[in-house]
Amino acid sequence: MDPSLYLDRDTWVHRLDPRTKMFLLIGAFVLAFIFLDPLYELVVLALVLIFGYMAKSLENLRRIWFILLAVGLLTLVLWSLVGGGRTPLFLFVELESVLYGLSIALRIDTTIIAGVIFLSTTRNEEVAIGLVKLGIPYRFAFAVTTALRLVPTIASTGFTISQAQRSRGLDLDSGNILQRTRKYVPLLVPVFVTTIRSTNVFSMALESKGFGAGGKRTFYLRTALGGRDVVVLVVFVVLLAASVALRVAGYGTLEGFSG
């Protein structure tokens, strides 16, 4: 199993500086949160999807379509039921609450899709360098990327462990919820113990390679804000400013919704 989302493609998005990509990601979040009209949200979603298309990253959406659908429906239903409005549709559900739910569903899915595009185009190490260049301490960034790198390793150890325990007769699917919960003990303990056990070798290997040897450190991956980054950033800032202006001018809101 390889849960990593990174796609090694050669597109102009991939070649952007990680800091630019982080800014775009946060910008996309902001963009998704500016409007409340589902139509405007749809436009934002379309923009994000076009961007993803150019980054050749949309295939990853296939891996999370279920999450997108579940979150979308859930949000729609929740807000339709919880929210209030002026125009009754049926029972106690009003048009405005449905529209609001739709809007929020689009908003969440848009942010998730933006996140997927970011992860599809940015290596872990680039995330780390980006964080470091933005002033986050190296050791923290190191812990984040190392954890990312270890997830598939631990997942495959977990798979071996579940095979070993199933061979001994463990059946996770029988029993009531309490019994089933407790059956995870024979899986969780070996996963935990075998992983944690490597802490010392891991730490020694790090120190033996000069981890924390001195203050200054160089990076193998090149990062530099180039002309391309500047263009993208300028375009995006203009887009953001225009959106905020629209909203301030009263466009893209939703009348008549009460939480």
């Binding site: 790198r149 390679k209 981890f211 001195g214």
Partner: peptide, 16 residues
């Protein structure tokens, strides 16, 4: 602990 082979090799030199 790195995500690719080249970066793994570069880790030590980076620290120095």
């Amino acid at each position: 602990f790195s995500t690719n082979v080249a970066l793994e090799v570069a880790f030590g030199p980076e620290n120095f």
